[in-house]
């Protein structure tokens, strides 16, 4: 009986491993092809001859008039994603603190408004939001990409639920000691919310890093493009240069994977809470 169980467990591990291999195969294919000799790109399941040619082509500017647009685009993405994510986290925490821990008239109304807005189809807002950014003089700027994504309803929702689970006695005790609301947020609430903060941060950053539609319509100049948009435009409909296309894909994907793996353990712990 024990031997049977052990055997079936081995089979399960093998199946799990094979499934995982299938799931990460597209990434392997991307990485291998980014280093593959140009004559082998998309010609072999697993390339056999390797070169750095694709990366050199990218960093020398490739077919673009501007030298090294990829490095510029990488930093654009970094600025936009970081700025946006930081703002979404700050506004998320602050608003959630009000909704979960402060008593005030209209709180229920705000709670309902946020829930309503969360389930509201956002597509209707696309064109007028573009016009607002234009009128605010933020077309073709970092702020144009950051500001419409400066608050995440999802982040507010997650933090509100988490903060509600923190006993009020902690806060009342701190208030008796004369702590202000800001001090309570920074000294009591946030240290207790590390796991959820990691989850919220990762989801927001991932989503922002891979945004296409908004960053595409609100930016015009080549030197303002985010990496994702540059990638999309340069290797768009007509293809060509598949090797550099994979190299650029690697440059876009690897940082976010490293970031995720760095926080993977805390992410898993945090997810346990969010999934309950």
């Amino acid at each position: 009986m024990a031997g049977h169980k052990k055997k079936s467990l081995t089979i399960r591990y093998i199946i799990a491993f094979l499934l995982l291999l299938i799931m990460v195969f597209p990434y392997l294919y991307m990485v291998l092809n980014s280093f593959a000799d140009w004559s082998q790109v998309d010609r072999k399941l697993i390339p056999t001859s390797f070169t750095l040619h694709s990366y050199e082509w990218l960093l020398s500017g490739g077919q673009s008039a501007e030298p090294r647009p990829w490095i510029r685009a990488f930093f654009n993405s970094l600025i936009v994603s970081t700025g946006s994510t930081v703002l979404m986290m700050v506004t998320g925490v602050v608003v959630a603190y009000a909704l979960a821990k402060l008593q005030f008239r209209g709180r229920n109304f705000l709670n309902n408004a946020i829930l309503f807005q969360m389930f509201f189809p956002a597509i209707i807002l696309l064109v007028p939001t573009f016009l607002i950014i234009q009128r605010l003089g933020m077309y073709d700027s970092y702020w144009g990409m950051i500001l419409p994504k400066a608050l995440s309803l999802w982040a507010v929702f997650m933090y509100t639920n988490f903060f509600r689970a923190i006993p009020d006695t902690f806060i009342e005790a701190a208030k008796l000691d004369g702590a202000s609301d800001w001090q309570i947020i920074f000294r009591i609430i946030l240290p207790m919310s590390k796991s959820i903060t990691i989850v919220v941060f990762l989801f927001l950053f991932m989503e922002r890093w891979t945004e296409l539609l908004w960053d595409m319509i609100v930016v015009k100049s080549d030197n303002m493009l985010t990496l994702n948009v540059l990638l999309s435009q340069m290797f768009g409909p007509y293809g060509g240069y598949p090797g550099p296309m994979y190299a650029a894909s690697v440059i876009l994907t690897v940082p976010i994977i490293i970031l995720f793996l760095f926080f993977a353990k805390q992410f898993k712990e945090g997810m346990q809470f969010t999934l309950k």
Binding site: T210, L212, T253
Partner: peptide, 10 residues
């Protein structure tokens, strides 16, 4: 974590 652009390219 993959951008839709990247997975489409692949």
């Amino acid at each position: 974590l993959a951008s839709g652009v990247v997975s489409s390219f692949i």
